[in-house]
Design a protein around this nucleic acid. Structure first.
Lengths: 330, 330
DNA sequence: CAGAATACGTGAAACGATTCACGAAACGAT
DNA sequence: ATCGTTTCGTGAATCGTTTCACGTATTCTG
């Protein structure tokens, strides 16, 4: 009687199946239930097209099947790519993803975490920049690219290996002297290891190099690299033949500037970037680059986040990078 | 006594303030409450750092402050841009955004909607392709780029005006004969109006033109345009001097192909795209293009979705486009 | 075959909010 | 001073789950 056209509840299922609500709940949550009862309940669920109400579930239970993802934005290709693969990985496991775009604003990052906590989400995945985030110890958290604390797993590509790989490629391509341009950061983040890897690779291969760092925020005054580059060009002849850029985005800006100076890429100068994101959703890379395994990173984040045994969670997971040819090397 | 280190509930607030829980609830929800009571409650809330539990709220109340966004993906720049601005617009209004990436898969799109409905979300914003989505009439829905039904508002840029603007620009730039390349779609979607606008503009300006449509899925065999283009080149001389592409992504592919044929852009052929997305988060456009007002579209979607009076919801809202110079026109 | 151990279904309490009928207080009008 | 309104705080019922103590039925053991 009554609520005819309303959504079915667990009570409706129990009635139709002729069992108690407790039993229905157990079936839903995979607790041990007798064979015949299980069948009755499942049939009733199908018959009514019943779906659990996630708010009631979240209120009472521990699991909400919801994960919060904190990321600077989704319009920048790399972040968009990360967000996408996180979404796919979560959806695959029947989790919902609540997204917060924080544009590297430390306060917004903290707010997002606080909001997530009061909503009893099952976990948080964060690509953050706030150097002193406070994270309640009792909610699973996985960080991308930043070591926040020993108890919080950090997932990143193998940045050191990536830097080294770039150096080795330059050597292989016949370069004699290369520049490394990087947008700096005072953070204890993984991408900073690209420098050490690069230096290591150069030393290994006997490659001459110079590193120039900018300590500003991303996308800001990267044009300040221009005078530095110009100081390395005498009478139209550069004293270098390769440039390694800390991101593909940076590479594209620098490439534009270099071409304005009358130099050709890759004929005069070879360039390698980092990230390996494909613009416009294309299959091909926009430059020669060290490719981050974005999909693997996303999968790893979700696996770590959702695995129960906190014990075995490693503080740092580095996933392998690859080199991809994209027109800026010979 | 008891739950010392647990999160404060509305009962704790009521006790501390010396009022009933009903009163606290009213204060939270902005219902009329006496001045002095309001002050007491607000102080208690602050003192305890109380935040409402959104699961309890969602269970009982109508509002969940959650909106579901359905979008193909976030790695393609345009979609990433849309997702980002929707996120910002929702966050600004204190709404949480649950995102589903559906890759234009009709079943996934329907599943996402069903999932959203059973979760009692406050609304759904969808950029979908399924021609026969079933959407319960009692949940607010706003569609981007596709007219789903008269009762469901559709938000898009003014595609007709965009097509016309492109034609006018070509005329202004001195073109005599232009090609329009478009990835087709049998859907009743707004972007298809670019063609009519373009034709209108060409007619208006006395510009000679030809339209070529591909009816495949996005990013697929756009290379099939190549033979068509080649058929318009005799002895190295093209019989056209401009190409309008239905998206910037398409433009970049075609541009690459054209350059392979030994033609220069924009010297020999001028090109205009559509979307106006900036790659890598840069400020500059990657090609001359008709710019979609993505931020305005996102704001409009959210405004329409959250406005109470269903009556005044228009079936279609077109937002103005602009032209931006980006190196592929003279 | 009897008694103990095990397995498993039941139903009520609890999660933390909203809402509504009710009654007390305050105010105005006659 | 009295009665009728209006205003507004109260507290219990409710939303749809999960969980746990309990009891019944089944199986095991010697």
């Amino acid at each position: 009687m009554g609520k005819e056209n309303s959504k079915p509840t667990i009570v409706d299922v129990a009635n139709l199946a002729g069992v108690s609500v407790g039993t229905v709940s157990k079936v839903i949550n995979g607790k041990s239930v007798g064979e015949s009862y299980q069948k009755k309940v499942k049939n009733a669920i199908r018959a009514l097209n019943y779906k659990v109400n996630s708010y009631a579930q979240g209120l009472k239970a521990s699991k909400t099947y919801t994960v919060v993802v904190i990321i600077p934005n989704t319009y920048h290709s790399f972040f968009g790519d990360v967000a996408h693969h996180l979404n796919v990985a979560l959806t695959k496991r029947n989790y919902k993803m609540i997204m917060f775009c924080t544009e590297q604003n430390p306060d917004l990052e903290q707010d997002s975490i606080d909001l997530a906590l009061q909503n009893k989400v099952d976990g948080i995945i964060g690509l953050t920049y706030n150097p002193n985030l406070v994270i309640s110890e009792n909610v699973p958290f996985v960080s991308i690219d930043r070591a926040i604390s020993p108890s919080i797993p950090c997932v990143a590509c193998d940045n050191f290996a990536g830097g080294q790989l770039a150096a080795e490629k330059f050597a292989e391509l016949g370069c004699k002297r290369v520049l490394y341009l990087r947008k700096g950061s005072d953070l204890n983040n993984e991408p900073n290891k690209r420098k050490a890897g690069f230096e290591n690779g150069c030393a290994l291969k006997g490659l001459d190099y110079e590193v120039k760092m900018l300590s500003d925020e991303m996308g800001d005054s990267v044009y300040d690299f221009v005078p530095f580059i110009k100081s390395h060009i005498k009478k139209g002849k550069p004293d270098f033949d390769g440039i390694f850029c800390s991101t593909d985005s940076l590479l594209h800006i620098i490439k534009g500037e270099i071409e304005k100076m009358g130099l050709r890429v890759p004929e005069d100068i070879q360039m390698i970037g980092f990230d390996g994101v494909r613009e416009h959703g294309f299959l091909e890379y926009t430059c020669s680059t060290i490719v981050q395994p974005v999909e693997a990173i996303a999968e790893m984040c979700v696996d770590l986040l959702l695995s129960d045994n906190m014990k075995t969670k490693p503080p740092l997971v580095c996933l392998p990078v690859t080199f991809a040819e994209g027109g800026t090397t010979r």
